[in-house]
């Protein structure tokens, strides 16, 4: 059982982050592209574009990245993006996988932060390298082999977080569809705990089931879903980080909704 995030806290609200920044008690990670980061960002934030992380996400390299961002085992980390929390989730999940317990997501996106008129600057902070330990948490990761076996178990729920049309067209057999848009509410990257619980409860996603999330390619949308589940008090979640892209490349079986031309209903 993994319950790393500090006291089950999943997101950090805007006011808390601002006061933590003032107190210098937080490491903020901006996962947007470097050009965007250079233009402006939340004060004191360091930049770790998701693409950079994914270019080589071997534990050894990720550990180096963590150290270079001045994060040790005790550092409180808040991650944000401008992509409804999906990229930030993927980075936060990676930190968690490496064994960092105190990582949360900013409750909103950078655009919204700015639209509230909150402080931002273009200063790149000087960071002292620190030493983080490595204690992997394989229990939050699902590989394709793991998934293939787990699928046959009754107590495992597999969730597809891509858009509905993509799901209808092709998905991993037995998966249920929970599009990533469902996870958010208005200005927040995640809906409130009560709302999330009700939604999941309606879907009979409850209790002690093991839940595996996946999406299209690198586990971003499903990373957000991973945190959505935890925010609703369902701790037993795993991310199939390589998601449907790998599943298809491995030519594993897929399923589709037959005998209906649903694409032609789309106005795209």
């Amino acid at each position: 059982m993994c319950c790393l995030t500090n006291l089950g806290k999943i997101t950090t609200d805007v006011d808390t982050l601002r006061s933590e920044i003032r107190d210098k008690s937080v490491r903020v990670i901006d996962v947007r592209r470097e050009v965007d980061y250079k233009q402006d960002h939340i004060p004191t934030a360091v930049n770790l574009p998701l693409a950079n992380l994914l270019s080589d996400d071997s534990p050894e390299r990720v550990l180096k990245l963590i150290n270079s961002m001045g994060i040790d085992d005790e550092t409180s980390v808040v991650v944000y993006d401008d992509t409804f929390g999906a990229l930030a989730s993927r980075v936060a999940w990676t930190l968690e996988y490496l064994g960092h317990s105190d990582v949360t997501l900013l409750e909103t996106t950078y655009s919204h932060w700015k639209s509230l008129g909150l402080e931002n600057d273009s200063i790149v902070p000087e960071v002292q390298t620190r030493e983080h330990s490595m204690k992997l948490h394989p229990e939050i990761l699902a590989t394709s082999d793991y998934l293939e076996n787990a699928k046959t178990r009754d107590d495992v729920i597999l969730i597809d977080n891509r858009e509905r049309l993509n799901f209808l067209e092709q998905h991993i057999p037995g998966a249920i569809s929970l599009p990533y848009r469902t996870l958010a509410s208005n200005d927040k990257i995640l809906r409130s705990k009560e709302d999330m619980k009700r939604l999941l409860d309606n879907r009979r996603i409850t209790g002690d089931s093991e839940i595996i999330t996946y999406c299209g390619s690198v586990g971003t949308l499903s990373g957000l879903a991973y945190y959505a589940l935890k925010s609703a008090g369902l701790p037993n979640a795993k991310l199939y980080a390589r998601s449907f892209k790998e599943w298809k490349n491995l030519e594993k079986p897929t399923e589709k909704q037959k005998d209906a031309n649903y694409w032609d209903l789309s106005a795209e």
Binding site: R164, I176, S177, P179, R181, L265, S266, A267, E268
Partner: peptide, 22 residues
């Protein structure tokens, strides 16, 4: 966006339909 296919449909009887809802 949340529950349907990212499109809605205007009917001939002044309804708006959302399709493929779980």
């Amino acid at each position: 966006e949340q529950y349907s296919i990212g499109s809605a449909h205007f009917s001939t009887r002044e309804n708006i339909q959302l399709h493929w809802i779980v």
